[in-house]
Design a protein around this nucleic acid. Structure first.
Lengths: 194, 194
DNA sequence: CTATCATTTCAATAAGGACTGAAAAGGATG
DNA sequence: CATCCTTTTCAGTCCTTATTGAAATGATAG
């Protein structure tokens, strides 16, 4: 084991139990668990946590050894994280391997994630709700059907949800649009207001 | 099939394809998909969507038939939704069955969900981060170890994450504390500011 | 061009969650 | 307290997703 590996706490023997490594592992494990409950797969969350806390570029083998995962898994997860945009590839001169590095600014990371999840998961729902409302319009159903109490009740519920998502979307938008290092404008406003 | 069932669009034959039912089903399906990507199981999300759009109390059998799920599944999912507090049990006089009804106010629902997820998923992470930071304190490691660049780098990353989560927590808190029907104070502040 | 090292891909498999159905428990009614 | 109706529970099964490992592909250096 060379000096670099020692400082990373990477190695096949479990003997190296530095406090640094222990602290990092604790964080990584917890972050992985949280990811799972928010619909992000555990391994991806762990890899991200690892790159984030180490705060230096690691290569695929580092990640594999440190988290005990296969090469295939590491490769696919690293690519997914790059696709999300929260880690970046890096080349070291004189080294064929690729290295990966996490963004350092938490606000930027979360703003990227928020943007992506809004696009992938909230926008389609909002679209669907609008469509459902249209299906229950007077112009689609005729006057008498559109006034049935059950139809009206459903329409009202859809309206309530649409309003909510519209507002939530706006907040996301603000968060997304402004986050370039440090606290967002949204957040500053909030913190000042309370 | 009686009148009540007809109006709910519930029935064993697939023949009844009312626009109301179609709109509801579209919403339910989409809501279920979204839930899945946010770590809420699809069936639970669908049941909730059903109770929400119908805007009237339904019994276990209604839910089973409408969503094609088993009694066991319906029972467990309904209980979980009650535990979350976003649907409520109801008794109808002269009827042994229990009925379930969704909260009508979306803001209240999400405030309940936010409170629960904060408690279950964010608070523990924050706790872990604090603990990890303590592991890397000068008082735990001694001066020289605590000043190693790798230790300092990790400590900084943990601090960055802690700050982020602390602020996020405050925002959640505001959202949670104020939401009793209609827009929260947080949301009003936000909307005025932009 | 070939050898060498790195990365990606993907079929096979393992692991984890969700769902069912039937049996048990609960609770109202006469 | 016996009956009838409803709800809950949970072992077994099914289904989805995550992971592996080895073969294919790509990239660099000599």
């Amino acid at each position: 084991m060379n000096a670099q590996q020692a400082s990373l706490g990477i190695g096949t023997t479990g003997a190296t139990a530095s406090p640094l490594r222990e602290a990092q592992d604790t964080f990584i494990r917890r972050w992985g668990e949280m990811g799972a409950t928010w619909g992000i797969n555990r391994t991806m969350a762990e890899i991200h946590a690892l790159l984030y806390v180490c705060a230096e570029p690691l290569c695929t083998d580092d990640v594999m050894e440190r988290l005990n995962i296969s090469r295939g898994n590491a490769s696919m997860s690293l690519r997914a994280l790059c696709d999300w945009g929260i880690i970046r590839r890096q080349h070291k001169r004189g080294d064929r391997k690729e290295y990966f590095q996490s963004l350092g600014d938490v606000w930027e990371m979360f703003s990227i994630i928020a943007a992506e999840r809004k696009r992938r998961e909230m926008d389609p729902v909002l679209e669907t709700i609008k469509q459902c409302r249209r299906m229950l319009d007077e112009s689609s159903l005729g006057k008498s059907a559109a006034r049935r109490p059950d139809v009206q009740a459903t329409r009202q519920r859809l309206e309530g949800m649409e309003e909510f998502m519209e507002v939530t979307n706006k907040i996301f938008q603000q968060f997304i649009g402004n986050a370039r290092s440090g606290l967002t404008r949204v957040v500053k406003v909030l913190l000042k207001a309370f």
